[in-house]
């Protein structure tokens, strides 16, 4: 009798353990993610924030100097130039990519022959690394051997296209190279959006007698809102990240004419050994992203909610 009772208790314990194991499995599986989120993402951001408020140079210092580094940052010529460059670059890059990508998508959408080939051609640069494409463009834009020289050899001896060595125009060359690389991405996203539009909308518009360009502008483009938003976010994150192309094309030059914040931060972290200043810069970058992307994400999640509740 007593043995039987003990056995029963043991069985119950075993069942409880099994239940516990089953319940805990998902948590165990999510452990790597939890670690990475808490340490890799949250932890590092907070750490950088802390470093940015210390007086660390080559080695971390554990003091607190408030916003001194930020003040120093905004007194730094190089940083200000970087910011200005990035703003100019960002506006031009995003607008050009969206416009060109939209045009490409619309033109490809006209039931053209060889659509597959064209799409492949427009998107292939995106498959390459920014370093590789940056190097190619450096070669193309190099006034001594590149396009300028080629056109001069064709007989236009006065032709000038030396933007890459021109302090005032070097940022435009980076815009050209990266737009070449990324506008295919916009095309792919928008084309997918275009193809998702109900064929009957087009028919209705034809019956209403609306010219094709007007349908694209007044009906299709507003309907592509989410796709445009997606493309914008992708392009915007690429702007903030801008580093590889600059390193490959100009290394920040001539002078500091094509310096960008990401490069400023990397240089101060590793070359110039000013960890605190670099961290302050990175936090500013994060702040910019947050301010620009957060409203978009909020609108996105609200739209998703609305859809879900319908």
């Amino acid at each position: 009798m007593r043995a039987k009772l003990r056995l029963l208790r043991l069985l119950r314990l075993l069942r409880l353990l099994r239940l516990l194991r089953r319940k805990s499995m998902p948590y165990a599986a999510l452990l790597p993610m939890a670690l990475i989120v808490l340490v890799g993402y949250l932890g590092t951001v907070l750490w950088s924030l802390k470093v940015s408020m210390s007086s660390s140079r080559t080695f971390p210092a554990h003091d607190f100097v408030g916003l001194t580094q930020y003040a120093r940052l905004f007194g730094n010529e190089r940083w200000l130039q970087s910011l200005e460059n990035l703003a100019l670059y960002g506006v031009l890059f995003i607008v050009a990519c969206l416009v060109i990508g939209f045009l490409l998508a619309v033109f490809i959408d006209q039931k053209v022959a060889g659509e597959g080939v064209l799409r492949t051609v427009f998107l292939y640069p995106y498959a390459m690394s920014f370093v590789a494409t940056g190097l190619v463009w450096q070669w193309l834009l190099n006034p001594g051997n590149g396009i300028q020289q080629a056109v001069r050899l064709w007989g236009y001896a006065d032709f000038e296209f030396d933007w890459i060595v021109d302090q005032d125009k070097v940022m435009y060359t980076i815009v050209i190279a990266t737009v070449w690389q990324a506008s295919g991405l916009v095309m792919a996203i928008l084309l997918a959006g275009l193809r998702g539009i109900d064929e009957e909308i087009w028919k209705a518009a034809r019956i209403d007698g609306i010219p094709t360009w007007r349908v694209y502008l007044s009906i299709v483009l507003p309907m592509l809102g989410p796709s445009v938003g997606t493309a914008f976010v992708l392009l915007f994150t690429a702007v903030v990240k801008l580093f590889d192309s600059v390193v490959a094309m100009t290394q920040g030059g001539p002078g500091i004419a094509s310096e960008v914040p990401a490069k400023f931060i990397m240089d101060h972290l590793f070359g110039r050994a000013n960890i605190a200043l670099a961290s302050a810069g990175s936090i500013m970058l994060l702040l910019t992203v947050t301010i620009l992307v957060a409203p978009f994400m909020y609108a996105r999640s609200r739209a998703a909610h609305r859809k879900a509740s319908q």
């Binding site: 499995m25 998902p26 948590y27 599986a29 999510l30 993610m33 939890a34 990475i36 989120v37 890799g40 993402y41 949250l42 932890g43 590092t44 951001v45 750490w47 950088s48 470093v51 994150t237 903030v240 990240k241 914040p261 990401a262 931060i265 990397m266 972290l269 960890i275 670099a278 961290s279 810069g281 990175s282 936090i283 970058l285 994060l286 992203v289 947050t290 992307v293 994400m297």
Partner: peptide, 27 residues
Amino acid sequence: WRARGAGLLFGILMMGAFIPVQVMIYP
């Protein structure tokens, strides 16, 4: 598996996708 707190972790992770790498590099 609706693990508690997983949604929040996922949310942070998604925001993490937008953090510039430079912020995380030194740490």
